[in-house]
Design a protein around this nucleic acid. Sequence first.
RNA 1: GGGAGCUUAGCUCAGCUGGUUCAGAGCACCUGCCUUACAAGCAGGGGGUCACUGGUUCGAACCCAGUAGUUCCCA
Length: 875
Amino acid sequence: MEISKTYNPKEAETKWYSYWIEKNFFKSIPDHREAYTIVIPPPNVTGVLHMGHMLNNTIQDVLIRRARMLGFNACWVPGTDHASIATEAKVVKLLADQGIKKTDLERDDFLKHAWEWKNKYGGIILEQLKCLGASCDWSRTRFTMDAELSEAVIDVFIDLFNKKQIYRGVRMVNWDPTGLTAVSDEEVIYKETNSKLVYVKYKIENSNEFITVATTRPETIMGDTAICVNPSDSRYESLKGKKVIVPIVNRVIPIIFDDYVDASFGTGALKVTPAHDINDFNLGQKHKLPTIDALTQDGTISEAAGAYVGLDRFACRKQIVKDLQEQGLIEKIEDIKNKVGYSERTDAVIEPRLSMQWFLKMENISKPALEAVLNGDVKLIPEKFINTYKHWMENVHDWCISRQLWWGQRIPAWYDDQGNTAVCKTKEEAAKLLNTEKVKQDEDVLDTWFSSWLWPLTVFDPDIIKNGWDKANSDLKYYYPTNDLVTAPEILFFWVARMIIAGKTYTGLKPFNNVYLTGIVRDKQGRKMSKSLGNSPDPLDLIAKYGADGVRVGMLLSSPAGNDLLFDESYCEQGRNFANKVWNAFRLIKGFEVDSSLTQPESSKIAVEWFNNRLSEQLEIINDHYSKYRMSDALMTTYKLVWDDFCAWYLEVIKPEFIDGKAQCIDNDTFNATIIFLEELLKIMHPWMPFITEEIWHLTKERNELDCIILAEWPKTINLNKDCLQTFEMAKEIIAQIRNIRQQKNISPKEKLSIIEKSDKSKTSINYTSVINKLGNLSSYDYSNEKKENAFSFIVLNTEFFVPLIGNINLKEEKERLTKELVYLNGFLNSVQIKLSNERFVSNAKPEVIESERKKQSDALTKIKSLEEQIAALK
RNA sequence: GGGAGCUUAGCUCAGCUGGUUCAGAGCACCUGCCUUACAAGCAGGGGGUCACUGGUUCGAACCCAGUAGUUCCCA
């Protein structure tokens, strides 16, 4: 059979993914085994796969595949998040493209469109995850707005309301006067804008003096309810207890004093407009100021302003400046640059606006969640995030859970004409509670995070809220708490903390044991990858170009937990090259012809013993990296084990030679050992490279239909033979020295050399001469206690070696090389001796440290002696 | 303004309990090779004042303090 010279990923990927699905290998149902569970951070239903998802989901898949091989009942639950803001925006835009305005639609009609959209496009991202190889239990796919999950959300709202943890209050929101909606902080884009800083003079009551206030928003003057200055500002000391008159409307307002004011900005006097600025609002609350809302929802001046009513806010700004100038109340106008918030969707200038919202009290409910992380019950990886978490949880604000949107779980609160409120599931209940048929449900929906904080619970048992932990279903009891959560640090508070809160509140248990926080994927210049910058490659293109395995390896090669990943396609190239290397190692092995009459060569016997130990040694390290979630270290150790140890050393030793252009056969023992090594390596590689490993697994030999690597058992380690490992290292060093001489002296690798070890054959510690002979391409390996003249020499672990050379040795060059080494060694010896002659070192350092310094000293002395002899011999 | 982190080779990063020839890895680079698995490869090689200053210690990339630069989070 002809095997292609390079690995061809495409075919293997579709073939094996559908095979795994067909055989239900990803499916998990509770059984006698221990569960290993991950719930996916549900991507936005509007989302398309980006590099962040790639990183995140590759890590999850690596963890879940390894757990499966370790014998756990591995369950990875997939799903999507309804993402109320993003999805609603998407649907609004889609409708607008068809000439339909949201404001022209009834709520139900709009939701119909939204569901249509969801059903049509909502599954795209999950399909994309399959290309990556994600081994999710697709039969468990959930959506945060599935009927049962939504009901749980409503149950939680009602429950927390009844426990008096949820209340209604006034809050400042980002208002989009064009879109006529509140938008989240994330949807406000701050742009550097050229503005005018207007210095307005306010007359002090019963006086001819003025106080000047600098403002960029003169149109809100009608909403002023105080002037505020810093109490330590000496300029205004005399104004304590005074009042000023607001221009235009001639209202009298107090002068108040607060540290909040920055005395160095403007005039050091601030006009306080509680209805139109969040900081002013806070000041207003603190000083119990009245609130005058001078603007309507579409950004025109309101009745309450008392002047310019109906005028647009920007037109008013111009007009008011003109009018104030005429009255001589403008001291000066400066050009400044400041940051102004614009709506991501409509590009309108965002207006801070007061509105009625629902809140969840966080102070008490968050305490067990803080405790869980501080006492290590929930581990954050890397640990540095514990501080951040602690800081946030100790300064937590009440959570605003209402959103002025339609797509989401509608708030189960009902109002009558009198402003009475009932919180319950149905209109009927509300009518009964409020004692009237005329009830109206709250127009708002709940924050998306108010449903996703239940995710690890409701994906298994949507009735958990209703029934309580004691009556939880068998799935939840089996899979919960889940094992690992893999997510981005930016949603540590939005999501992770709140899941812990929900878990603790409704089950008394944490939702997961470990939280692995990935970095952010950035481009080479360190910029966050984003659609608007256009600097994000399409992951599916990358997969097409480098193969899913190549991209997976590329993503994880340089991505320690919590560190941002500066992505570059060359990583994927490296991943692809690795896959190709594996493929070619397989190709070589597959091409071996076995002759069972052959006896195993000594060199092969040594290589088999060595690699058996080496594999186990490295596997221990890999297992240790996994246990500490050092993913890129685990991968790099695997990479080097395969590429360096297996390909560059093991296979080179056991590879039969060519004689007269014909490959020789391989003996039975070596061949069988090699196949086993290959299989073990494939298993270790499988979590990183699921497709190529499955492909080779099946090409290696005939297997029955369930004998797949995805289900194979993770290799076990053996007791190490340290001698064997050490001796082989020495042999490698000797071979490298021989190759070095060839390179330096321009001797072809094909030309045979001979070598003399300066020792007694009976006393030598180097037993691997057959390996050295083969890889060094030697004609002879001899022993002598004599120095060899006219030979190149080198030292490996205090043993000298000579390579006699045909032709002349460049004495000068050789002498220079040896002298350089001698100088270095003398310097080294010197530093060791200084240390050893330091009495305080000898009396304070640990005995084993002193011992090792002594050994260094004696080794260096031996080496120096032989170097000196060699230099002398060159004369 | 408050908080957290980072700074080690050209790049991306390890360096875990302060002590092994400890200054490392991968990539990139340089040199020589199309050597019958692989040029997506093989062999060999060069490269760092561990940001700076001071302190603790017999001993500091590692602990402490300060300085500079930088990133993120909250307001």
